[in-house]
Simulated assay, not measured.
Amino acid sequence: MRRRDFITATGGTAAAILTHAPASAAPHRIGTADIQRLQARFAEVIASDHRHGGRVTIETRAVQLADEALALQEHGTASQRIRAALYACAASFMSSAMWAAIDGRRFEAALKHHQKAASIAAMSGDSTIQFRIWSHAGSLFRHLGRPGDALAANDVARGLPIARRDPMFASLGHARHAAIHGLTGDTNAVHRLLGHAQDALERADAGASRPVWITAFYDQAELDSLALAAHLAAGSWENAEAHAHRCLALRRGTMQRSHAITTVRLAHAQLGQGDFEPAVATAMSVPVEVSTHPRVAGMLTAFGTKLHALAADGTPDLTWAQYARDIWRTTA
């Protein structure tokens, strides 16, 4: 083949390739609509958590959505404001994954989620989601029996700007701090902090715009729930029972798992006062379909163990033992 013919032939081939090659897609411009879509997914995760709570499926879905939000950072263009909002969305999802793991008693996974959530939230500059993450960390360490770490983590949350600006956040921070101090047996701190939490909640503007994660659960009932946890941990049985009854009266009907947790805590408070028969009746009132939740099941098991230690082979002990066998046989 002559050189000129070769050049002509190869040039034509190259031209054909260029003509039929797909054009490079322009980078996606990330905007408010993308943020709103992610926020809608976050609201769905929150709603699912309230219905079911602690499930691995919720944790997995939240992690997937966090990855989706972070992928937009890598493959799209956006203003600085939108990028910060994307990081806040990703951190929100990771905080829900963290909470699902805590609620499901998967503490090692929760610790890993916390590390990722905290680093992403720091890049967002959003103190509301940072508050949620560090407040959850305080709860995580409280459940692990590490009050020192729990107090330190919750102090990070309480020191954030949002806790100074909005009394509702301040109230939640104080209430969770009280629950942690219950573990240490510092009843004076418990009473003081619960007083601060109540005062702050009463000052909070009910009509203020706040993230869905806090409006979905924090109210007077939740404050009483945390007060119940604090007094129960400190062995203040009568105070614990009083807050339990108030919480149950005020608790939103959609929060079945939270209602069950409060009911079991009430049973523990009655047990601590030696009211064995009422305690058993209270524990048996927990709906069967909720009793299999890891957190609820663990609390019911602890109830049975404590009841047997206090009233071995008595009528309440035997009644509960038979009931528990029937429940776990049915739900196995």
Results as ranks from 00 to 15, higher is better:
191 H>D: 14
184 T>K: 13
72 L>I: 04
216 A>W: 04
228 L>P: 00
132 R>Q: 13
270 Q>K: 13
84 A>K: 10
92 S>K: 00
203 R>I: 06
233 A>W: 08
268 H>L: 06
133 I>W: 07
108 E>N: 09
205 D>W: 10
127 S>L: 03
304 G>T: 09
39 Q>A: 07
203 R>H: 11
47 A>K: 12
305 T>G: 04
27 P>K: 15
309 A>C: 00
211 P>H: 10
74 E>T: 02
87 Y>R: 07
275 D>Y: 12
28 H>R: 14
310 L>C: 05
76 G>V: 08
183 L>R: 11
254 T>M: 02
137 A>W: 02
325 R>C: 08
165 R>N: 09
176 R>V: 00
271 L>I: 01
48 S>V: 01
56 V>K: 07
34 D>W: 01
262 T>R: 02
116 K>I: 14
275 D>A: 15
176 R>T: 05
103 D>Y: 06
82 I>Q: 04
103 D>L: 07
223 L>I: 02
69 A>E: 08
332 A>Q: 10
280 V>E: 11
42 F>L: 11
188 N>P: 00
172 L>I: 07
93 F>A: 01
201 L>R: 12
44 E>Y: 05
27 P>E: 15
332 A>N: 13
192 R>Q: 13
171 S>H: 04
55 R>D: 03
124 S>R: 04
84 A>Q: 15
176 R>E: 03
